[in-house]
């Protein structure tokens, strides 16, 4: 392994991570400078609302495609979301495995696993890019940061797939490209839309808190909403109701 690759795998990554963590900390300070709203209304329901359950529902919402119409009815997009984010997780994991546990990659199965997951994410990245460019609505809501972040991740996935076998003796340029790209990714993320996951716990907390307090979360659907989503519904379903305690 060259000194440059050693630097890219260790010092560069550690520095980039430290910068990212610092900027994230500043981001959180910035967010917390805004006052939190207070809800004075009496809780909905004869009993105190199950706040913990509602918050959990809100936080886990993204993992429950049945919970929102937007994910129920756009299963393809949801599947893309899952694959894409699994790819991000795997590519980040790989950036730790290569420098700190390279022997893991002696297992061909694990290498195939990384290649498969990240490769699928690369394909999804291309699909997402096509969608963002081809759909007028997506173009209208896209900023340069949206395009660049997506392009950055997609190229990074490709490099991660190629780097996964971890063969510095034959493939050092790819490994160098992957680690420099990872460092750039870590440095760029806090300034870009990719940092959305930092806000996720907060946005979903506040929405979940309000909607749980008001008896909306967890969302209860009518028995046959599926009718409008293209699935067949038995007429008998129309008489079933979800169980619910009295409110107010």
């Amino acid at each position: 392994m060259s000194e440059l690759l050693h630097f890219a795998e260790h010092r560069l990554q550690e520095t980039a991570l430290a910068v990212m963590a610092s900027v994230y900390a500043l981001r959180l300070v910035w967010l917390f400078r805004f006052r939190a709203g207070r809800d004075r209304q009496a809780p909905t329901g004869s009993r105190p609302p199950a706040m913990a359950r509602g918050l959990l529902y809100s936080w886990l919402n993204v993992g429950m495609p049945w919970a929102m119409e937007s994910t129920r009815t756009q299963a393809g997009l949801y599947a893309q979301f899952v694959v894409f984010h699994l790819g991000v997780t795997a590519a980040i994991l790989l950036s730790f495995v290569i420098p700190y546990a390279p022997h893991w990659l002696d297992s061909r199965a694990l290498v195939f696993g990384f290649e498969g997951v990240i490769g699928a994410a690369f394909v999804v990245g291309l699909m997402r890019f096509y969608r963002r460019l081809s759909q007028p609505t997506m173009r209208a809501i896209s900023t340069p940061d949206d395009y660049f972040s997506l392009a950055l991740l997609t190229v990074w996935f490709l490099l991660a797939v190629l780097a996964a076998p971890n063969r510095p003796e034959t493939n050092e340029p790819i490994l160098l490209a992957y680690f420099f790209m990872t460092a750039f990714f870590l440095l760029y993320v806090p300034f870009s839309k990719i940092s959305h996951y930092l806000y996720y716990p907060f946005t979903r907390y506040y929405l979940g808190r309000t909607l749980t307090h008001r008896g909306v979360y967890p969302i209860r659907r009518g028995p046959a909403s599926a009718a409008v989503e293209g699935r067949r519904v038995l007429a008998a379903d129309a008489h079933r109701r979800p169980e619910r305690s009295p409110t107010c």
Partner: peptide, 12 residues
Amino acid sequence: RQIAGSLAACVH
């Protein structure tokens, strides 16, 4: 904080 979070978090 809720509105600021909402305005900051959209990923388009």
